[in-house]
């Protein structure tokens, strides 16, 4: 796909930016909600975050939980129990983290109150504008993949919407 990649001006790309290392907790928070999705690597990152928070003089309330995959209702329940002043910290695969981040934003958190770290990049959230489905796509930008909703073959555009927490797919056949 190299030629396609070069044909698109990278100045118009919008892609999520990821840190190389797990970022430090934002200590201006009064409480922390730590979530890991998927494998043990993500869980280890979150445990490291918790240990870091316990070491501070603040010793803030910390709620930590692990889930095999992102679940909107589960996250909404946790955020309903949290109070304003909380900081959300998410680690996991790219699909789960981006979807959790968009859900948290829709429920009122701002990006400044969320810390995220991707432990794997093998999947991404793909939005199909033809049927409005968001699929877990095991693919990369510029690949072709099937929409799980309408089974159109979509090209994954280098266009990420932080509000939707997904990449844009387009049927270009």
């Amino acid at each position: 796909m190299g030629n396609v990649r070069e044909a698109v001006d990278s100045g118009t790309w919008s892609l999520p930016q990821w840190a190389d290392q797990p970022p430090d907790p934002d200590l201006t928070g009064a409480s922390f909600l730590l979530i890991s999705y998927g494998d043990s690597e993500a869980e280890a990152v979150v445990q490291q975050w918790e240990a870091g928070l316990r070491r501070t003089d603040l010793d803030p309330p910390v709620l930590r939980f692990h889930a095999s995959a992102f679940d909107r209702d589960q996250l909404a329940d946790k955020l309903a129990e949290a109070r304003c002043g909380v900081r959300l910290m998410i680690a996991g695969g790219q699909y789960d983290v981006l979807q959790a981040m968009a859900t948290a934003r829709a429920l009122g958190l701002e990006t400044g109150e969320i810390t995220r770290y991707a432990t794997a990049y093998e999947d991404l959230p793909l939005f199909c504008p033809h049927c409005q489905t968001t699929s877990r796509a095991y693919a990369e930008v510029f690949d072709w993949t099937d929409c799980t909703g309408c089974h159109r073959v979509l090209t994954i555009k280098p266009h990420y919407s932080s509000q939707r927490g997904s990449f844009l797919g387009v049927d270009t056949r």
Partner: peptide, 29 residues
């Protein structure tokens, strides 16, 4: 207060100072 709240204050200066100080301590950006 629930996640996603915004807080508004109108009052004398000492009250505004308390509001900012207590809000920051409670983790409000």
């Amino acid at each position: 207060q629930p996640v996603g709240s915004h807080a508004y204050v109108c009052g004398p200066m000492s009250m505004l100072e308390s509001f900012l100080e207590i809000g920051a301590a409670a983790g409000w950006p």
